[in-house]
Amino acid sequence: MKNSHLKELTKGIWKENPIFVIMLGMCPTLAVSTQVSNALGMGLGVVFVLTLSNIFISLLKKVIPDSIRIPSYIVIIASFVTILEMLMHAYMPSLYDALGIYLSLIVVNCVILGRAEAFANKNSILDSALDGIGMGLGFTLGLTIIALIREVLGSGTITLFAIGGWDGVIRIPGLASTPIRVVGMSAGALLVMGLLKAFFTWKDSKKGEEK
């Protein structure tokens, strides 16, 4: 893989992370980050929609007239979200139930429309696909970090996916019986998000000073 392609894939994971750096898709980030399993499910849903919509939009970039650019993107994104919804409802019903209305709201996730407008309609299919995967993974990583902190401190558990007889929940001794409830609530989401953003900004500024 060429260096430039690799850069498109990796930039979204850390350097241009959609949650901590670009700060897009805040609404689902704050709402869905109550459990690690929800964050992983939502994140992978975004990877699916973002990658396929980026590929489609890049493929059609010369065909779509400028005047109907945004409506066309919305139709394409909404179609992939509908497909994702149907697949999740059929094959992952518990995750589908847990994500509820937020799954449909991927349509208006700014990360997806943002990447379509800022990247996919100007770049090749391969680069757009890599951008979609990278940004999607970066979104998943950010969402999962926030969910992990919120769930561990707010509930004293880490909820993954049930396998066989195991219910998929890791209970943390001490914290499970006396969790810091506010972290699991809406105020806790903003608090955790703010602290993580401050950490990323500090890390970036430190890097800048070193250079």
Partner: peptide
């Protein structure tokens, strides 16, 4: 163009 995009998306769904 918009009709064709909608039609392709509808067939996919």
């Amino acid at each position: 163009v918009l009709f064709l995009i909608c039609a392709v998306c509808a067939v996919l769904c």
